[in-house]
Design a protein around this nucleic acid. Structure first.
Lengths: 122, 122
DNA sequence: CATCGATATTCCCATTCGGATATATCGAGG
DNA sequence: CCTCGATATATCCGAATGGGAATATCGATG
């Protein structure tokens, strides 16, 4: 019928300071790092290069006051994971996404209906 | 003291279909067009080139089913304004921004406190 | 029918962003 | 002390973005 893109909230960015914000891409990356225990594997699943993912990790660690991602190399313990702060940031962000979806549901529906009416008539 | 960037919700994007979304930049541009009655003046106030503003107007008019911005040239009636649909989209978007701010206020504060604790100790 | 102001449109170019790739580094374990 | 897998890092390059500027177009008005 029509496309498969998500309708509704697509980008929610929260700015915490001049040099730090958390948005959907960074949150997804953090979640995948937590799931896979690896920056490179998370990057692969996000469809982005390791370089970009690594750059984002730098931003996450340097922008926030404390590191959000912990990475270690060498031996069999190598890999990456979220710090306690990282887990909290991610959890809070997911919560805000959900709260936002609920808060704007009616408006989204109204806009969707308006958009539908307008574009239906081809 | 510190920077002057807005803390909290900074980007809210709502996707209505595969080829249309409304975000803060587009909303601001629409608002300025409504205020000034001119694409070029709105562009100037947004600090962007007319070319870019005009491109955004194209997107707004072609992505949504119906035009959101109406422009006319020639004579003394030249200028631009929002259509009824445009006004409604803008109004709804502003409402969603406000609803979102309220919905996430507690989380933002909590994150801000966490961030503050973390970055305070230099 | 010339003027005027804002829209409409195109061309060229600097900057940015990120992918691809290659290489270096680390350190537990065989 | 060599291997291995994942992190860390630099270099090169193509695509996309958007600005600046030049030009064309429109049409009410005088």
């Amino acid at each position: 019928m029509h496309g498969n893109k998500t309708i509704g909230l697509s980008h929610l960015r929260i700015t915490l300071s001049d040099n730090f914000y958390i948005g959907p891409g960074r949150a997804d990356l953090m979640e995948l790092i937590a799931e896979t225990g690896s920056i490179s594997e998370a990057a692969k699943r996000m469809g982005m290069s390791y370089k970009r993912a690594w750059g984002l990790v730098q931003v996450l660690n340097e922008g926030f006051g404390a590191p959000l991602v912990e990475a270690s190399r060498g031996g069999s313990m190598q890999g990456a994971s979220l710090t306690a702060a990282g887990r909290e940031v991610l959890e809070r962000y997911r919560g805000m996404q959900e709260a936002t979806r609920k808060a704007i549901a009616r408006d989204v529906e109204a806009l969707g209906a308006l958009h539908g009416d307008m574009s239906e008539r081809k």
